Computed example of a mutant assay.
Amino acid sequence: MFTGIIETLGEVKELRKEDSNLHITVKSSITQELKIDQSVAHNGVCLTVVALDAENYTVTAIDETLQKTNLEHLTVGEFVNLERAMILGSRLDGHIVQGHVDQIGTCTSVEEKDGSWVFSFQYDAGLNNPTIEKGSITIDGTSLTVVNSGTNTFSVAIIPYTYEHTRFNTYKKGTIVNLEFDVIGKYVSKLMKNRD
C-alpha cells in the first residue's frame, strides 16, 4: 500500500531482458535503506527488490506488468518516481494507492499557468476506469486531484514542488504515463454496473 507521495527520483542504471522479464537496476538516495523482498513503487508500479549493493538495487518486471505499464519504454539514464510502502499508523498524505497500475495514458498538453502547470491526459475509456471532478488519480505514482474530467480525458494541476521533485518536469505532449484510478471509485463503478 502506498500514498502517492513521491519520496525521491531514481536513475535507471541498467535494463536487462531475461526471457519476457525486464530487470531494472536503479540508483537512488534511498538504496541503503532498502532490503531484499521490499516493495517499492516505480512510476506507480509496485515491484520487489531482488538485489542490491551500496548504491544500486534491482527489481524485476514480468511480462504482465510490462504490457500494462510504461516500464517497457524506460531508457538508461531516465529517472523514475520512487515511493516505499507506507508505514501503518503514518499519516496518509495522498490517497490509498495500491501500486497496481490499471492502464497507461498519454499526455495531450502541458499548459503553464503563471507559476503552476495544467497537464491533460487521454486514456482508453473501454477499460471502464472512471475519473470524477475533484476525485483522486495516480499518475506515475503521484497522487493528484482530477480537474476537467471527461469520458476518456482529464487534467491535473501541478504545483512547483511537485513539478520539481517528480517526473512531471519531463512530460510533454505524447509522453506515456502509468495510471492508477481511485480504488474506491473502481469498486463503486463495478457495484453500479452489476446492478444493471
Rank of each mutant, 00 (worst) to 15 (best):
T65K: 04
V183D: 01
I36E: 03
T60V: 15
K193I: 09
N56Q: 10
N148Q: 14
E133Y: 13
V146D: 05
E33W: 00
I24P: 00
E18Q: 14
G94C: 01
L9E: 04
F79Y: 14
F121M: 07
S109V: 10
L88N: 13
L52R: 13
V156R: 09
H23Y: 11
T153P: 03
Q98W: 01
E72C: 10
D140F: 06
D63T: 11
I139H: 07
T145G: 04
A54K: 15
Y163P: 01
N70F: 02
T58D: 04
G105C: 10
P130Y: 09
L71H: 03
T8F: 01
T166K: 08
P130G: 09
R195Y: 10
T25E: 11
F2V: 00
T8Y: 01
N81W: 10
V26P: 00
I24M: 04
H165W: 11
D102M: 05
I96Y: 12
K172P: 05
I137K: 04
D114P: 04
D196E: 15
V59C: 12
A125C: 08
E55R: 09
T170K: 14
G4K: 03
N81L: 13
I176V: 15
R16Q: 12
V147G: 02
N56T: 13
G185H: 07
S39W: 00
G105H: 07
H100C: 08
L82D: 02
K173R: 15
S189V: 07
L9I: 06
D37W: 01
S90P: 02
T138P: 00
Y187K: 12
H165C: 06
M1K: 05
A41V: 03
V45Q: 06
K172I: 13
I87N: 10
D124V: 10
L66M: 08
I104V: 15
D37L: 01
E33M: 02
E83Q: 03
R167C: 04
I139N: 08
T3H: 02
N56D: 11
I24N: 00
D196A: 14
T142P: 10
N43G: 03
V12W: 07
G174D: 12
N70A: 09
S109H: 15
A41T: 02
E7L: 05
K190G: 02
L191M: 14
E64S: 09
E78Y: 07
E83K: 00
Q38E: 12
V101N: 06
L127C: 08
M1P: 01
L74R: 00
N152D: 15
K134F: 08
G141P: 03
V156Q: 08
G105T: 08
M192F: 13
T142N: 14
I159Y: 12
T153E: 09
K173A: 13
G126S: 13
F181I: 05
G185Q: 09
G94M: 01
D140H: 06
K35M: 04
L66A: 04
V26N: 00
I184N: 07
L191P: 01
G44P: 07
T151G: 15
I176Q: 14
L22G: 00
N148L: 08
L34W: 04
V40R: 00
L52W: 06
C107A: 11
E164S: 09
E72G: 12
Y57Q: 02
M86A: 04
E7M: 07
V188C: 04
M86I: 05
L66W: 07
S189D: 13
V183G: 00
T131I: 15
T166D: 05
M192T: 11
S149Q: 07
